[in-house]
């Protein structure tokens, strides 16, 4: 696993703490687990997506598949892929 992927996941966790709740909750959310099933509501997901645009300097496309938004892992994978 690349350092870039590790760093992106760490940053996404920080953003999730900012937009949704304290670090105690976010620390219980594993990288591969479904954010929805973990209890992250769509409102927090939207806020996270907006925060990711600012943090990583890209804009979401409206044809991104739901699987990309599923977990911290999949979100990080998307960012890494965009960076080529």
């Amino acid at each position: 696993m690349s350092d870039t992927a590790v760093e992106v996941r760490r940053r996404i966790r920080e953003l999730l703490v900012d937009v949704f709740g304290g670090p105690s909750f976010v620390s219980t959310v594993h990288d591969a687990v479904s954010l929805r099933e973990a209890g992250v509501p769509s409102t927090a997901l939207v806020a996270l997506l907006v925060a990711m645009e600012d943090a990583f300097g890209f804009e979401w496309a409206d044809d991104v598949r739901p699987e990309v938004l599923r977990s911290i892992d999949s979100l990080a994978g998307h960012v890494v892929a965009l960076r080529g």
Binding site: R36, S42, T43, L45, V46, L49, V50, E53, E59, W60, A61, D62, V64, P66, L69
Partner: peptide, 10 residues
């Protein structure tokens, strides 16, 4: 914007 679209889709 697109994040709102994606969130409402969820």
């Amino acid at each position: 914007g697109v994040p709102g679209f994606l969130g409402l889709r969820e």
